[in-house]
Amino acid sequence: MPELIVSPSPHIRNEVSIEKIMYSVIIALIPTTACGVYFFGVHALYVIITCILSALFTEYVALRLMGRKFVMDGSAVITGLLLALCLPPGLPLWMAAIGAAFAIAFAKCAFGGLGHNIFNPALIGRAFLTASWPVAMTTWTKPLTYDAITTATPLGLWKMQHIATPSINLALGNVSGCIGETSAIAILIGGVFLIAKRYTDWRTPLSYIGTVAVLAFVLGQDPIFHILAGGLFLGAFFMATEYVTTPITSKGRIIFGVGAGIIVVVIRLIGGYPEGVCFSILLMNAFTPLIDRHVRPRVYGVKRKSFFVSSANKGD
């Protein structure tokens, strides 16, 4: 005779755990990483390994200082890997190590560790390195040459010299840029894998990339160039979909994507930097609590309200 078990909800648990999601994301990043190493040579691999080791070490030290147990949940590995993917391939290794340590210590552990950070740690690491060593962070290596021939990125060429790069090169990745932002196809493979496993929501990348394409088209730019160049794909599939720092509702995710897309186009067309993906996601991270507050889903059984009334009444 079965026992009667009395327990509070939830009664049905999913098999998905933090570790499972994190390692899936790492698997999804393998094509991008492989492409980066193929195009930029072994130094790119050193940068990636340095970032991951530094992130893990910093997380271990920070958690020990906070009096907590270190759990190998893969989140530090992802932060290190994502940071490395948005760094130039020729960056000195000690700078990469400092960037990863900063990302973990200040953007993650200072806010309370996994699940409490406001901003995406990897992007904070990148923003810190850009502000600290602007020259090293904008020295780009030419792909497939394996030595330090410096060139401009496609977006830099477009902004400074008005030279457009062929889209086929942008899609395959035979362009200069950060380690992980070369091949749009490789990123797409990883992104679709995560969406197919339902670990990420298709709404954020679609609304993000879609907004950039539409706005670029409306403003008389080549939309294909703008969505393929720079870090838009990497940001849209792997950074704008981070669980902790982006909205939790589907409507909120669309708002997040549209807002980030607008900021990217504004920075690229008007701002001083050639690329704005990093700052667009960081800025929208800051808006995430606000978005979440205003697009709360209707509670099951409660009457539907009109948009204006509901948003006016939600000032609690």
Partner: peptide, 8 residues
């Protein structure tokens, strides 16, 4: 190569 950010 000191960190420019520290002056900011």
């Amino acid at each position: 190569s000191p960190s420019v950010m520290m002056t900011l």
